[in-house]
Amino acid sequence: MNRSGVAWLGILPAGAAMAVAMTAAAGTPRITTAQSDYVEHCAGCHGISGSSAPAPVPELRDRVGYFMCNGEARDYLIRLPNVAHAPIRDSGELADLMNFVVFSIGGKSVPDGAQPYQAEEVARLRAEPLRPGAALLARRRQLVGDLIRTCDAPADLQEFYAGQAPESREQQDSRAGA
């Protein structure tokens, strides 16, 4: 934080800087807009570090990058309703957020040569979100099946988080409404 943090305190009037130093806000690291958007709109459920295991929420850390392995899975991430409908109107800003999620949080799971999302691409995809009635869970299962077969994704990518015991197919089907 140091350099940007100091610069940030430096532009405040002396009195205000004193007050900051005395509150819990002191020493708060400066974060990027993409990080801030991630925390505000995603991190509650997915975890500030990209994992909220053992909550029944897809773990992003070192896993979400596998979705960049093929076009369908890449599109799916943007078409998820909470991504497509995120209260971020500028699709460039949303692209920055999703590139942070995929490349920073996704870490080692990103395939070599994966290209970042572009604003126009995000604008096009978010206009076609997964709609009510779409079998979201079945769709995810099919896409992840492909990633496991063709992209070396681990078998537990079908589960919410690494190391989770596989759910029985029967349970999954009943939840998917299949």
């Binding site: 309703p81 497509a84 979100p129 709609r131 009510p132 009635g133 779409a134 979201l136 009943s174 409404g177």
Partner: peptide, 30 residues
């Protein structure tokens, strides 16, 4: 009966004998 997925939406207002209305996060209804 099998659950009906409503990605991005919530709530279940009964409408008539076989209808359900849900409110969605993008300001629409399912």
């Amino acid at each position: 009966l099998p659950p009906v997925e409503i990605p991005g939406c919530a709530l279940a207002f009964a409408a008539g004998n076989t209808g359900v209305v849900s409110v969605c996060g993008d300001g629409s209804l399912a």
